[in-house]
């Protein structure tokens, strides 16, 4: 049965409001946790805040049991944005909120990168960029072999496109017709050494993924309605025989003005007064 959602599907206003609130929660918690760590990846989370919110609060099939065999999976190629994931996992009840208060401190399982052995709700560990799409490919292969219907979502950084293994996985997923594998590229335009297109250009990105045999959709990654609709359509389309790639056009540091214009904020630490100003700006905006 083809249960695909219509192309003009949009979530209702109440859902959009709820997801906006959760994306704001992700940004605020990121600031709070990095205050504890004294250094962290603010802007990598801010570009992906709507992606986190859409997946965990609307699109993914989850249960109270983070090990439920039929759950949808979420993997992060850009594992350095895990500081944005941990508050969600606590919010969903997978890990104690107290752990967040000791983020990165000695003995705490929550670090800069997600660790599946230590943190309930993390579907795969990451940190070495370029592995995650292959990990997700394996999950999708095994899920199909087991007759399970879960979807595997893999969020990739745009700088990550420079890793050769990504393209090995892209070839493999298309060849094996892994229709329940969805790659989400956080196309925020920056990597450590500068603008992605200056460091090692990756465009035309959509044409590359199409040429590799994927179903490709380009969306505004901060328009929570458009993004959520694209993700829901990707998940619901049971007639599709290709893996799906959603290129989310985003802004690195989205939500905090001075970070949006300064790529140096990839890794950093806010003074208390700057953190307060960032919080106020996030709370005052509708993204």
């Amino acid at each position: 049965m083809n249960s695909a959602l219509r192309n003009d599907y949009r979530p209702d206003e109440a859902t959009i409001a709820r997801l906006r609130d959760r994306a704001q929660f992700v940004r605020l918690e990121t600031i709070r946790l990095i205050e504890i760590a004294k250094v962290g990846h603010y802007t990598s989370v801010f570009s992906a805040a709507e992606i986190f919110a859409a997946l965990y609060y609307d699109v993914m099939r989850l249960s109270d049991d983070p090990k439920w065999a039929d759950r949808d999976r979420f993997l992060m190629g850009k594992g350095h944005a895990a500081v944005g994931l941990f508050p969600i996992l606590a919010d969903l009840g997978y890990l104690s909120a107290d752990l967040l208060n000791g983020y990165t401190r000695l003995g705490n399982p929550l670090g800069d990168h997600p660790d599946m052995r230590k943190v309930a709700g993390v579907d795969f560990s990451s940190g070495s960029i370029g592995h995650a799409l292959s990990n997700g490919l394996g999950m999708a292969l095994a899920g199909r072999m087991q007759g399970r219907s879960f979807t595997t979502f893999v969020m990739l950084g745009d700088g990550e496109m420079q890793e050769g293994q990504v393209w090995e996985a892209a070839l493999g997923a298309a060849h094996h017709k892994l229709s329940r594998l969805v790659a989400i590229i956080d196309r925020n335009g920056y990597q450590l050494d500068g603008a992605v297109d200056d460091v090692m250009g990756i465009e035309p990105l959509d044409e590359k993924w199409r040429a590799f045999g994927w179903d490709v959709h380009v969306v505004d990654g901060h328009d929570i309605g458009e993004l959520t609709a694209a993700l829901r359509r990707a998940k619901a389309d049971e007639s599709r025989t290709r893996p799906c790639c959603i290129i989310a056009r985003t802004v690195k540091g989205k939500g905090v003005g001075y970070m949006e214009t300064e790529p140096g904020w990839h890794l950093g630490y806010l003074d208390p007064s700057d953190a307060e100003a960032a919080r106020a700006e996030i709370l005052s905006k509708v993204i």
Binding site: A69, G138, A142
Partner: peptide, 16 residues
């Protein structure tokens, strides 16, 4: 694609 194979095997192993 040896690297892809090893990482995919790890993903497979998470499912039992």
């Amino acid at each position: 694609s040896e690297q892809n194979m090893v990482s995919a095997a790890a993903g497979i192993a998470t499912t039992g």
